[in-house]
Computed example of a mutant assay.
Amino acid sequence: MDLPINIEAVKGFLAPEEGRALHDAARDTAALGPALEIGSYCGKSTVYLGLGARAGGGQVLAVDHHRGSEENQPGAMFHDPDLADGHGGIDTLPHFRKTMRDAGLEDVVIPVAASARVFARVWAQPLGMVFIDGGHTLEAALVDYRAYAPKVAPGGILAIHDVHPDPETGGRPPYEVYELALASGLFRGLALVDTLALLRRLDV
């Protein structure tokens, strides 16, 4: 797959094979409704989603308050001083907008600068795909799952990033949400691509 920008220069953690899987899922579910991403950061995953949605004739809702997750805050493990907002916090929105502009995706990707919890209150339309990659505390991951999993259209895809079956390789909340989705009876597992879990919404 040809990418319009140097994707490795975009801040964020996403393996190329995960990106390709996101692209294909967004393309293949575009007819069911928009793809919604929770946790866009600087836009690396959004590029893949946007290109896939464009190929399928769809749109992407990129939902992020752009103030960073717990691990991105000053003093935390994954804090990046390049993202400092000058007020003791971080602001990834300018970086995200630049990524979308450089990738030529401003006509496909709709930025939503709000928390996923807040946006869920006003979004009722079925979604072809939901990609959960927001806060990695159990509370944050559960809020995202409970707010958006019911909005995935039958036949659509729920994708969850940073799923680590082995607790020695990563944090547990995304994996616990993945197990919850499987146990719900609403989804069946499709694939685990590196740490990206893909599930299909059943017609129930």
Rank of each mutant, 00 (worst) to 15 (best):
A183N: 10
L3W: 01
D2F: 02
L93F: 06
G88L: 06
H23V: 01
R146A: 13
Y175E: 11
A35W: 00
L83Y: 01
I38N: 00
A197V: 00
A84F: 08
D203K: 13
D107H: 11
D166N: 15
D203S: 13
E106A: 09
G155L: 08
L127F: 05
Y178F: 15
L32T: 02
R20S: 12
M100N: 08
I90Y: 01
G33C: 12
S40H: 02
H136C: 11
D107C: 07
L186Y: 05
R201I: 04
F78C: 12
K11G: 11
P16H: 07
G50T: 00
A113W: 02
D203A: 15
G135R: 07
A35I: 03
A124W: 04
A35L: 10
R188V: 13
S69L: 14
M1I: 12
V60Q: 04
T46C: 14
A183W: 01
A114V: 05
V204F: 05
H164M: 06
E8Q: 15
P4T: 07
V130C: 09
L142G: 11
H95Q: 07
L93M: 06
R200C: 09
H65S: 10
L83I: 04
L138E: 14
G75T: 01
G189I: 02
K151Y: 01
L138F: 07
A114F: 01
A153K: 11
L51T: 01
L202G: 11
V108E: 03
I5S: 08
W123D: 03
G189F: 04
